[in-house]
């Protein structure tokens, strides 16, 4: 049985949460975020990230500043807004509850 579809759906569900979690540590350039998400195998194609960043920025969860790049044009460095931090804390709770719920079900003998 092919699990690709359900895996993609699960990743899609947690992707926005993961972006916020990455940005909660440092302000990041888009490629830094992509590298971290790729390393964690949450994302495969880079193009996925950009519409999500735009959406989260428009929702007031992120802001960005321009920073000079060692080569080429200046880069956008994204960071969490205050609203984004509050939202992330809520998502942390939701995630913990979800993991706990799934573990309870899995571990029931």
């Amino acid at each position: 049985m092919n699990t690709d579809n359900i895996r993609a759906q699960m990743r899609k569900g947690i992707l926005e949460y993961c972006i916020l979690a990455v940005l909660s540590r440092n302000s990041c350039y888009a490629v830094d975020i992509i590298n971290e998400l790729k390393k964690a195998r949450v994302i495969v194609v880079e193009g996925t990230l950009y519409p999500l960043l735009t959406r989260q920025k428009n929702a007031g969860l992120l802001s960005y500043r321009w920073q000079e790049s060692p080569q080429g044009p200046p880069r956008k460095y994204y960071e969490l807004t205050e609203l984004g931090q509050i939202y992330l804390r809520e998502l942390d709770k939701v995630w913990d509850e979800l993991v706990e719920s799934v573990n309870q079900i899995r571990d029931r003998k």
């Binding site: 690709d4 579809n5 993609a8 899609k12 994302i43 495969v44 194609v45 193009g47 996925t48």
Partner: peptide
């Protein structure tokens, strides 16, 4: 690297 546009949300 970037992926096809239809993959952006499916992320397959």
């Amino acid at each position: 690297i970037m992926g096809a546009p239809e993959d952006y949300y499916d992320d397959g």
